[in-house]
Amino acid sequence: MRFCFLLLFFMSSFGLKAQIQLGYKLQLGLNLYNCQKMGLDQRYQKNDSEGQILNLLPSLGLGLWLGNARRLSLELDGQIEFLPFHLNTAEYKGMGAWQTPVSFRLAFPLWRQHSMAWRCSLAAGQIWQQAGVFSASPTAISQQHLVELSSDLAAISTKSDQIRALGLFFRYHWRGELNGFQLGLRLDWGNSF
């Protein structure tokens, strides 16, 4: 409850008192590069890694936002992504992976003019992953922390808070010796309730 009051106070300091709205968004993502570092492989005395370049299957996501699409908004996002050609090239353990990132995002405009905006957002959350889904023994599901930086070009309706955005994101996730990063594109379609 304190968090809600603190959030409303923070958003009102940006001049959003009468303009705070609640909305939803749909997301479609394209993972351009995905790399996972699995830690030191004791047999070869080198770091074990796996990944995929240019995943042509889009990730699908949903989100809620609170704030103002033209100014500052706090968003809750969740996606699911399937990577069919995710593999380890050093030692083949099977192909395929899935991942589900869930994050809180703070989005703010860097530049605005009429109905166009260049926005930046910072996000933090969790990601659940499993690799080797097409093998006889897939890896255990791992839960990792994530941080994400994204930038997008948005078209915002002047009559309502409808938003259409195309953005580039960089996501880093870690837990212990496991870490990884992703680079991708994302399309957002959003409306206020």
Rank of each mutant, 00 (worst) to 15 (best):
C4F: 13
F5L: 12
L6G: 06
L7A: 14
L8Q: 08
S12T: 08
F14D: 09
G15M: 10
G15S: 09
A18H: 13
I20N: 09
I20W: 03
L22A: 06
G23R: 01
Y24D: 05
Q27N: 04
L30F: 12
Y33K: 14
Y33L: 14
Y33H: 14
N34I: 01
C35T: 11
M38E: 12
L40Y: 15
D41W: 04
N47D: 09
E50N: 05
L54Q: 04
L54V: 06
N55K: 10
L57A: 03
P58N: 10
S59Y: 01
L60T: 06
G63E: 04
W65F: 15
L66H: 09
G67S: 07
G67W: 02
N68K: 07
A69V: 12
A69N: 02
R70A: 08
R71V: 07
R71F: 03
L74P: 10
E75P: 01
D77S: 13
D77H: 10
D77K: 08
I80C: 03
I80N: 03
E81I: 04
L83P: 00
P84T: 15
H86T: 04
H86W: 15
L87W: 00
T89P: 11
E91N: 11
K93L: 14
K93H: 12
M95L: 06
A97G: 11
A97Q: 05
W98P: 01
T100I: 14
P101H: 12
V102S: 02
F104I: 14
F104H: 04
R105G: 07
R105E: 08
L106V: 15
L106Q: 08
L110F: 11
Q113G: 08
H114W: 11
S115V: 02
S115Q: 12
R119P: 00
R119M: 10
L122K: 06
Q126N: 03
W128N: 05
W128E: 09
Q130A: 03
Q130T: 06
V133R: 00
F134V: 01
F134G: 00
S135N: 09
S135R: 05
S135E: 07
S137P: 00
P138Q: 05
T139C: 02
T139S: 12
A140Y: 04
I141Q: 11
S142P: 00
Q144L: 15
Q144I: 05
L146Y: 01
V147C: 10
L149D: 07
L149R: 06
L153D: 00
L153E: 01
A154I: 03
I156F: 06
S157A: 14
T158M: 06
T158N: 10
D161P: 06
D161C: 09
I163Y: 02
I163W: 00
R164S: 09
L166H: 05
F169G: 01
F169Q: 02
F170D: 00
Y172K: 13
R175S: 09
R175G: 07
G176A: 13
L183I: 15
R186E: 09
L187K: 02
D188Q: 11
W189K: 01
N191Q: 10
N191T: 09
